[in-house]
Deep mutational scan, measured.
Amino acid sequence: VFVDDHLLEKVLELNAKGEKRLIKTWSRRSTIVPEMVGHTIAVYNGKQHVPVYITENMVGHKLGEFAP
C-alpha cells in the first residue's frame, strides 16, 4: 500500500496529539489507511483543495477518487 511519507507523518502526528484539523495535500495517489479515519483531508483536484472527510468505508481507496 502506498502513502506519501509527508502525509502519513502529518496524520500520525495529529493522532498522537489527539487533534483533528484540516490537512492539505497534493498527493491524490496516496491510499487511504485506517490511521486517517476521522480526519478531514483537503485533496487538490488541479484547481482547488476539496475537503474530504475520511470514513471507514474509504480505507483501501485512493484520495484522488474522492476529489473529482
Rank of each mutant, 00 (worst) to 15 (best):
V1H: 15
V1P: 15
V1S: 15
V1I: 14
V1W: 08
V1F: 07
V1E: 15
F2M: 06
F2A: 06
F2C: 15
F2D: 07
F2E: 08
F2V: 06
F2Y: 12
V3Q: 04
D4I: 01
D4G: 02
D4Y: 02
D4E: 09
D5E: 15
D5H: 15
D5I: 15
D5A: 15
D5N: 15
D5L: 15
H6Y: 15
H6K: 14
H6N: 08
H6F: 15
H6T: 14
H6Q: 14
H6W: 15
H6E: 15
L7P: 01
L7F: 01
L7C: 02
L7H: 00
L7Q: 00
L8P: 01
L8S: 02
L8F: 11
L8W: 13
L8R: 05
L8G: 01
E9M: 15
E9Y: 11
K10P: 01
K10C: 15
K10M: 15
V11T: 02
V11L: 06
V11K: 01
V11S: 01
V11Y: 01
L12V: 09
L12T: 08
L12A: 08
L12N: 10
E13D: 08
E13N: 09
E13T: 08
E13W: 09
E13G: 07
E13S: 09
L14V: 02
L14E: 02
L14P: 01
L14C: 07
L14Q: 09
L14D: 02
N15P: 01
N15H: 03
N15Q: 03
A16N: 10
A16D: 06
A16H: 08
A16V: 07
A16F: 08
K17G: 06
K17P: 01
K17H: 08
K17W: 06
K17A: 10
G18N: 10
G18S: 07
E19P: 03
E19I: 14
E19L: 13
E19F: 06
K20A: 05
K20G: 02
K20L: 10
K20C: 08
K20S: 05
K20P: 02
K20T: 07
K20F: 11
K20D: 03
K20M: 07
R21P: 06
R21M: 12
R21L: 12
R21I: 11
R21K: 12
R21D: 11
L22G: 03
L22E: 08
L22C: 13
L22S: 06
I23D: 01
I23K: 02
I23M: 04
I23H: 01
I23G: 01
K24D: 03
K24Q: 08
K24L: 13
K24G: 02
K24H: 12
T25H: 02
T25R: 02
W26C: 15
W26Y: 15
W26T: 06
W26H: 14
W26M: 09
W26D: 06
S27N: 04
S27W: 07
S27E: 05
S27G: 03
S27F: 06
R28D: 03
R28I: 04
R28L: 05
R29Q: 11
R29V: 12
R29M: 11
R29Y: 13
R29D: 08
R29S: 07
R29G: 09
S30K: 02
S30T: 05
S30C: 07
S30F: 03
S30N: 02
S30L: 02
S30A: 03
S30H: 02
T31K: 05
T31Y: 15
T31W: 10
T31H: 15
T31S: 10
T31V: 11
T31N: 12
T31I: 09
I32E: 00
I32M: 04
I32L: 05
V33L: 12
V33R: 04
V33D: 02
P34T: 12
P34H: 11
P34V: 14
E35Q: 13
E35D: 09
M36V: 01
M36F: 12
M36N: 00
V37C: 13
V37K: 12
V37I: 14
V37E: 09
G38P: 00
G38N: 09
G38Q: 08
G38S: 11
H39T: 01
H39I: 03
T40E: 06
T40A: 08
T40W: 09
T40P: 01
T40H: 08
I41A: 01
I41G: 00
I41Y: 01
I41C: 02
I41R: 00
I41P: 00
A42S: 09
A42M: 05
A42K: 04
A42T: 03
V43T: 07
V43E: 00
V43R: 00
V43D: 00
V43Y: 02
V43M: 03
Y44N: 03
Y44L: 05
Y44S: 04
Y44W: 14
Y44A: 04
Y44P: 04
Y44K: 03
Y44V: 03
N45K: 07
N45E: 07
N45M: 05
G46N: 07
G46H: 15
G46F: 11
K47I: 14
K47T: 11
K47W: 10
Q48M: 15
Q48D: 11
Q48T: 14
Q48N: 12
H49W: 13
H49T: 03
H49E: 04
V50M: 10
V50P: 05
V50C: 13
V50D: 10
V50W: 09
P51L: 11
P51M: 08
P51A: 13
P51W: 05
V52Q: 04
V52Y: 04
V52L: 10
V52E: 01
V52C: 12
Y53G: 10
Y53S: 11
Y53K: 12
Y53F: 13
Y53I: 12
I54R: 00
I54Y: 00
I54V: 11
I54Q: 00
I54D: 00
T55K: 12
T55I: 13
T55A: 12
T55L: 14
E56Y: 14
E56M: 14
N57C: 14
N57W: 13
N57V: 14
N57D: 13
N57H: 10
M58H: 14
M58F: 08
V59Q: 10
V59M: 10
V59L: 11
G60T: 11
G60L: 12
G60D: 09
G60Q: 09
G60R: 07
G60V: 02
G60H: 13
G60W: 15
H61V: 09
H61Q: 12
H61P: 00
K62W: 07
K62D: 04
K62L: 12
K62F: 09
K62A: 09
K62Q: 10
K62N: 08
K62Y: 08
K62H: 11
K62R: 13
K62P: 09
L63E: 00
L63V: 04
L63P: 00
L63S: 01
L63K: 00
L63R: 00
L63T: 05
L63Q: 00
L63M: 06
G64H: 08
G64N: 06
G64Q: 10
G64W: 14
G64L: 08
G64T: 04
E65Q: 13
E65H: 13
E65W: 09
E65F: 12
E65C: 14
F66Y: 12
F66M: 08
F66D: 01
F66K: 04
F66S: 04
F66G: 02
A67L: 06
A67T: 04
A67N: 04
A67V: 08
P68C: 13
P68A: 12
P68H: 08
P68F: 10
